[in-house]
Design a protein around this nucleic acid. Sequence first.
DNA 1: ATAAAACCGTGTTATAGAGCACAAAGGTAG
DNA 2: CTACCTTTGTGCTCTATAACACGGTTTTAT
Lengths: 233, 233
Amino acid sequence: MVKKELTETEIAECIPDLWQPLTPEQRALLVKNFTIQRYKKNEIIYCEGETPMHLMCLLSGKVKIFKEGVGGRSQIIRVIKDQEYFAYRAYFAEENFVTAAAAFEPCTICLIPMPIIMQLLRENNELAIFFIRQLSIDLGVSDERTVSLTQKHIRGRLAESLLFLKETYGVEEDQSTLSIYLSREDLANLSNMTTSNAIRTLSNFATEKLITIDGRKIKIIEEDKLKKISKIG
Amino acid sequence: MVKKELTETEIAECIPDLWQPLTPEQRALLVKNFTIQRYKKNEIIYCEGETPMHLMCLLSGKVKIFKEGVGGRSQIIRVIKDQEYFAYRAYFAEENFVTAAAAFEPCTICLIPMPIIMQLLRENNELAIFFIRQLSIDLGVSDERTVSLTQKHIRGRLAESLLFLKETYGVEEDQSTLSIYLSREDLANLSNMTTSNAIRTLSNFATEKLITIDGRKIKIIEEDKLKKISKIG
DNA sequence: ATAAAACCGTGTTATAGAGCACAAAGGTAG
DNA sequence: CTACCTTTGTGCTCTATAACACGGTTTTAT
């Protein structure tokens, strides 16, 4: 556990949504219980079955939340980007983790003990409403995802994933290269298909000039057509 | 809209989780804004795309939350039982409904305008924490469901649905007949399969003596074996 | 009572996508 | 540099499940 001494201003910049509604005393409590942790590429952040202890906020890097299904097949449930909070759901539900989390690339994460968060929640309604909103958004996404993953065909699912990655992590300076470089396997696990089908479908998209691929670099060329493929399933 | 005059005691019994944390003034506000609505069997309660206006609590009956996917195929996302709250997620997320709701059987539902709920939330932390907990539980269920529906085979999915229905709505006096009578189509939509496959798999289960079927009455005989089938997928 | 519609059951066919197997390429470690 | 492992790519086979067709039955509406 790398623990750095940070100023209040630095912390405020890390976790603005959490920080803003707090009173000075509440902020002081947060500062006292604030730690920072680094994770290497592909390192596991938490595992299925573990007991949740901390709220986490991703300060830099990219994280996947996933779940091992039948026969060891892994399904990526959602991905986390900069300044997103995670790992708190299970604590609120009084459960152990039903998912696992791992770093796509080197990450910096800040941790705040969940009991501290609970205390703040009891004192501060704006904070509670923040979490209600976050959970509500995530639940809506999860419901939509259930239907997409079960009903769309392979091309639709992969197209959706590509668009989703663009929306979530954005693009590089050329405005079209996805700024996340995933392995074909991760792409498959995100889109509920086998690795070979992810490879095949990806190169189909490339021959159809919807995208270009250069190793793990994916450039989106025909976004509208991808949207159409994603929509019709 | 059937509006009955109810006493505070009656209301308190309808919505204990919501009622209990409130102060007398908050309770008075709730009483003033409390309405009751009845729905017939198969009646739509709300539609995809509509703007959420009320928190709903199911007082009696059974409700399905579902979503139309590609090609009109409908997927049941979750089901609501007695004293469960629903229809509030979209409002909290500041979205329109992404799902629809319909009555499996005749229902009584109480409605409370969401702005009233928001006001209570701002005043009452226990209430906020109640919603945080509910949403967290639902999100966990939704995540698990995504993996089950995508990875398990037909038999596993149907077995899971049967067990889930038993757990949710319980059984009749004989301790084994499911107390919800679903059409084969609803059973299929719950388990992500076609109606013919639901019919086929159901009668397979019957010939294997795991269940007995008499029209829509389903009796669970070998719960352990069903659990095993559900688990291995 | 009778027509119409919805639902249930079964057989047949078609196909999307999983599951190999294997080769080439790229990365990493000693 | 060499050896080894991981990742990518391609072809082939096989199977789970969708899709369709049709006949019987039950429920609902008129």
